[in-house]
């Protein structure tokens, strides 16, 4: 039993150690910023991976929840004078409620029909954010007040590195635990065969909605962090391309691999930064690299490499 706990928490401990050690090699605040972005996106991607990788449900509108989180910490303090930290939780709760209400009818849909329904949902949210300029500043976006906790204000990439890093580790461990719980096993059963799961007496609809709510809350917290960290938010935080980016991170890292979520976020945050030296050829290379990764590591980076290592050991 002890060894089981150890192996299960091993990745979390390794990643936590990396988070602590890495800054020693950061030459400037720019690297901290990249780190923060990685953690924030990884947070959203872990949530989405629970939905996609374990429950087998694709969401093409997940950035909508990112948007709810981001605009909660913008609108709440600016228009209603509510403290940011409260808005962060409020946003997560709101995202959960939205996911709960729309989850049941939408998650009845299968495969690509679910994809288009979630896509529609994400677009609806983005349209509202763009149109209600009185509240959201419209396409130009709006400023986000700093996060203030007990009179201490969180600013700068270095501070946010530790906030986002710690939050990511907590979210990571929560996700690992969730996967090993009875709910997690039920979810995997749904992924393998929904009908078989139903025959076994699993309330498929309820489990699916539950995981949808959790993944929406993960995305919402990530969105709040992103807005607070940037100090500014525009509707593209909730846009279709953002949703695609999140799905790409899940698939690239490996569906069903929580560690893969981090790897996927690292690759897709760092790669565009690395590709800037190619100027006009940035997009060509980005597209090419995504294709090559998917063709040759089709199960995602982490599961494919893990399989390759296991194979070699034999």
């Amino acid at each position: 039993m002890v060894s089981l706990v150890q192996t299960r928490l091993m990745p979390a401990i390794v990643i936590a150690a990396l988070i602590v050690v890495l800054p020693a090699f950061f030459p400037s605040a720019y690297y901290y910023r990249i780190g923060v972005l990685v953690f924030i996106f990884a947070l959203a991607v872990v949530g989405l991976n629970l939905l996609m990788g374990f429950a087998g449900q694709v969401s093409l509108g997940h950035a909508g929840f990112l948007g709810i989180g981001a605009y909660s910490v913008a609108i709440g303090p600016v228009h209603f004078g509510v403290p940011s930290w409260l808005c962060l939780f409020g946003g997560a709760a709101l995202s959960g409620v939205v996911a709960f209400i729309v989850g049941r009818p939408i998650l009845k849909l299968k495969g690509h029909y679910l994809a288009v329904a979630t896509l529609g949902l994400g677009l609806l949210l983005a349209i509202v954010l763009t149109n209600e300029a009185r509240w959201t500043g419209g396409p130009d976006g709006m400023s986000v007040p700093r996060l203030v906790l007990f009179g201490w204000s969180a600013r700068g990439a270095t501070t946010w590195y530790w906030i986002a890093g710690a939050t990511f580790i907590v979210a990571f461990v929560l996700a690992l635990n969730l996967m090993d719980s009875p709910t997690g096993r039920a979810l995997r059963a749904i992924h393998d065969s929904e009908i078989a799961a139903r025959v076994l007496g699993i309330d498929v609809a309820r489990k699916k909605v539950a995981i949808f709510v959790i993944s929406a809350m993960y995305a919402s917290v990530a969105g709040s962090f992103l807005a607070l960290f940037n100090g500014y938010v525009t509707p593209d935080a909730a846009g279709f391309l953002r949703s695609i980016e999140l799905v790409a991170m899940v698939v690239l890292g490996g569906m069903g691999s929580i560690v893969g979520s981090l790897v996927g976020a690292v690759v897709l945050v760092v790669l565009p930064q690395a590709l800037t030296v190619f100027h006009d050829y940035e997009q060509v290379l980005l597209g090419l690299i995504v294709m090559v990764f998917m063709i040759f590591l089709r199960r995602g980076i982490v599961p494919s490499l893990a399989a390759a290592f296991a194979g070699r050991r034999k």
Partner: peptide, 11 residues
């Protein structure tokens, strides 16, 4: 993207 812009500004 405003988010990318801020990253590049930092850079």
């Amino acid at each position: 993207s405003a988010d990318n812009a801020r990253t590049f500004a930092t850079r």
